[in-house]
């Protein structure tokens, strides 16, 4: 029996717009959330989202359907965002060849995390998340929001599993003091 991922792979190979339409519906929010975590800002994300889907249409045949679709999609989005950062440094992001993405302070106005916080704990995390190094924020979002395995994250970010794990530990260590000394 054909699995969902194989159906997606077939649809992408055939450049089936109906399949893409379903994928857009299904993954759009997660793609936006991932790109916000990567860029640390909300403006400009919609352009990257559109660019990502166009790249999916263009290079869809490289998705083999043997693994989950999300890691492949996020990797495409990440490559597009990193390329844009290298070409447009005024996008207020600094890139570093070794580290991938580095600090991304938002320029004025409330941060996307402050605007998106819907719970008390989220409000407490918003500022720390905004100032957190993007590579740590990205690792936390991929592990705990997207529920991806360390291996899948490793493929997306192009770093060894041990580096991904270490980014998660350091990200948690930075955010944990917000809740220390309290009984939940």
């Amino acid at each position: 029996m054909e699995s969902d991922t194989q159906r997606i792979a077939l649809g992408l190979r055939q450049r089936d717009v109906a399949v893409l339409e379903t994928l857009v519906e299904q993954y759009q929010y997660r793609l936006v959330r991932y790109l916000v975590s990567l860029l640390g800002r909300r403006d400009g994300v919609d352009d990257f989202v559109q660019e990502t889907w166009l790249r999916v249409l263009e290079r869809g045949e490289s998705y083999d359907g043997h693994s989950r679709f999300e890691p492949w999609l996020f990797r495409v989005a990440r490559n597009i965002a990193l390329d844009a950062m290298r070409k447009r440094p005024m996008f207020s992001l600094d890139s570093n060849e070794e580290e991938g993405v580095r600090s991304s302070p938002a320029s004025g106005g409330p941060s996307p995390y402050t605007l998106a916080a819907r719970t008390e704990d989220a409000e407490r995390l918003a500022h720390s998340l905004q100032t957190l190094e993007p590579v740590y924020r990205e690792a936390l979002v991929l592990r705990f929001q997207e529920d991806l395995s360390l291996q899948e994250i490793s493929v997306i970010v192009g770093a060894p599993v041990s580096t991904v794990a270490s980014r998660i530990y350091r990200g948690l260590a930075t955010l944990r003091p917000q809740f220390e000394g309290e009984i939940a």
Partner: peptide, 27 residues
């Protein structure tokens, strides 16, 4: 552990607005 779990729960407490015209624009 409890503080770590609250961090993880806090991460799920964000809800980003998606431009309602974005899907149509992409399609």
């Amino acid at each position: 552990l409890s503080a770590s779990n609250r961090v993880i729960a806090g991460l799920s407490g964000f809800s980003f607005e998606v431009n309602p015209t974005l899907n149509a624009r992409v399609l």
